[in-house]
Nucleic acid binder design. Sequence first.
RNA 1: GUCCCCAUCGUCUAGCCUGGUCCAGGACACCGGACUUUCACUUCGGCAACAGGGGUUCAAAUCCCCUUGGGGACGCCA
Length: 461
Amino acid sequence: MITRFAPSPTGHLHIGGARTALFNYLLARNQGGQFILRIEDTDVQRSKDEYTGAILDALTWLGLTWDGQPVFQKARAGLHREYVQKLLDTGKAYWCHCPPEEIEAKRQEALARGGKPRYGGRCRELGLGPAPGAAVRFKCPHSQSVGWKDLIKGRIVIDSQELDDLVLLRADGFPTYNLAVVIDDLTMNITHIIRGDDHVSNTPRQILLYQALGVQVPQFGHVPMILGKDKSRLSKRHGATSVMAYKEMGYLPEALNNYLARLGWSHGDQEIFSLKEMVELFSLKQVGKAASVFNPDKLNWLNAHYIKETPLETLGQLIWPYLAARDLICPNPDYLIKVAATVRERGKTLAELADKAEFYFLSLPKIDSTEAQKLLTPDNLANLKELGLELAQNPGLTHEAFDSLIQNMAQKKNVRIGAIAQPLRLALTGRTASPGLFEIMEILGPDNIQKRLNAALEWTS
RNA sequence: GUCCCCAUCGUCUAGCCUGGUCCAGGACACCGGACUUUCACUUCGGCAACAGGGGUUCAAAUCCCCUUGGGGACGCCA
């Protein structure tokens, strides 16, 4: 078995492409086959090298390793032309001299009439030769039905009457997508073509091409589309679509892979899968036929899950770039591990975690003024001052001792524990929601605590 | 418009092929409770679906047909 992922470098790897790549990868690895990467760069205008690099980076980040070197389609144009010539020689293709504008006009006209916009086949039987501006078209066989047993959707049949004579070779001498894909899949011995649903209508054309060449037709499987919340095709207006954007937002590749796999594929009631496990369990039989809606909430849940599973040392290193981007300084590597331990269950993404951890690295926290007005009242400040004194006298306080200190104080002042704890939290972190007070104090250390306490005592809006 | 595909809780889905074990199971989200000095985590519980209509059958979420709804494609883009 040989599968392939064949993106065109006209943009970043998006969520849909990533899932297609994942399914190809899983299928190949599950069957002990090969997974090949082919860059479809025949659109010279829109293809960019930077996108090729970005796509490779994204696949690498996801851990979807491909076999061998990526194949560049443009470099194979000579091969494609050979096959076009072969089709020309056997009368399966012909030169077309029709001006593109004229064809386009007819197409629009047909569409406006409510008909099917197709090329009429003016040059089909004219026996024309090459000429400037001429293209080669496939002589699509008439009145025959083309069908295949789709690996995901089951039997699909289309009347060849629905198809027109597609262009194989453009006037600029470059092959078109449909020709190039067929020749490449054929010559690269691709056995299973797993691609997006939007290619279903290309499949009968391509099958006809395989047949015209007299070669075996590979297996096709079309994975359903990913939709946005409004059930329209997933696009930028639904939020981030590029894989690397998810990386930047602080999603883990494990989470994205897991989410994408579960979007369409299932294995009973199981929700959590490592990539290795997916490889073992994957089967196209368990891929659904219907399009599915991208649900960020569930991705978040998975991401939180994998964040919790990540070893603290690793997690610290993953969070650090987000902190470093804010020009913060890390006192020592151990500090980061301790910090990570206190925030890891409090956020869904690395970016969120970093945000919650920022106060640890600030020389003084940015105190929320709304909360300060509520909490830093004269009474509370008096308590805070007293608490500061106590803490200064007992720098090596145990967790238990700290708890009873606060409790006793609350009792003595006849206030709720929160009346003591919340102003302290605000002084230490600048916020009213944070990791546990004692955990924070352990990490901050006595000097830092006093400094923050003093700053809070002098706080003015 | 034409052709193709699809249809189970708000969302992802199990079940459908091989009808009865399903007054439909799990997960996310949501809503309550417990835990708790905050936020969160965890935990317990709850809400919530077989698109509609016809068949077939003793019996249909499961098989067939129609309707409706949704998606995709119709490029000298990929």
